[in-house]
Design a protein around this nucleic acid. Structure first.
Lengths: 116, 116
DNA sequence: CTGATAGATTGAGAGCTATCGATGCAAAGT
DNA sequence: ACTTTGCATCGATAGCTCTCAATCTATCAG
């Protein structure tokens, strides 16, 4: 499945989140659900450190995360998947490795949603 | 308990969150835990709409939330407590009513944590 | 082709969370 | 004093999530 090169994760991740604003006007239910999905992805300390590591390194493969995060390989895979489905990181498979990087536009959209 | 007027909720809420930055450098575990706690509070659609309502109205009592959010009174109480413990809203009891308002500094701290 | 490695997926267990009915309690109203 | 009202708390339940061992798949090295 997928074209083979990259990004088979995060398909519905590229969704809106374009204009939802928490503080300016009452959120519609759909906007709230979409935003809550992203915030949930950020609502775990291991995932926050994972995201932080990826951001610092620029690009990281999954195998470089098990050590620093002190979690098993399936657990790392679980967390990368959740962050990717939230659109916060992008994965690209190159050879044996999956390389992860931050999706800055998505992070910016989250910040914008909390703008006054 | 507390001095009687306001704010008996959110005691450990006024915590740091001052300088944690997700994207700039690898998060320490304590920072990650603190931030994850706040993001978890934001990671529920009902709570996001609740926060949104409070922000729009400026000040809202719990009784005005049951209708719009279509949740029972205990559930509303549950969600206000979680948002208050995360420091995102502040509650003040006046007479029979508890009035809620957004804690803008806290929201701003969350935004800053996602700054590039 | 064979063996090794990166990582996704599956399955299971422990713990957490969203929800509501019932109850308790304090502040107003009568 | 009695009743009503707003809201916190308790208890129970259904569903979700974090975690890892085991397994499967795909890629690379030889």
């Amino acid at each position: 499945m997928a074209t083979g090169q990259a990004r088979r994760v995060s398909d519905r991740a590229e969704a809106d989140l374009c204009c939802a604003s928490v503080l300016e006007a009452p959120l519609a239910e759909a906007e709230a659900a979409e935003l809550a999905h992203v915030f949930s992805a950020l609502g775990d300390p291991v995932r926050l450190r994972l995201l932080s590591l990826v951001a610092s390194e620029g690009e990281v493969c999954s195998c470089d995360l098990e050590g620093p995060l002190r979690r098993s390989q399936p657990t790392i895979s679980h967390h990368t998947r959740i962050l990717a489905e939230a659109g916060l990181i992008l994965g690209e498979k190159r050879g044996k490795w999956t390389w992860w990087r931050v999706a800055p536009a998505r992070v910016e959209a989250v910040r914008r949603a909390l703008s006054p």
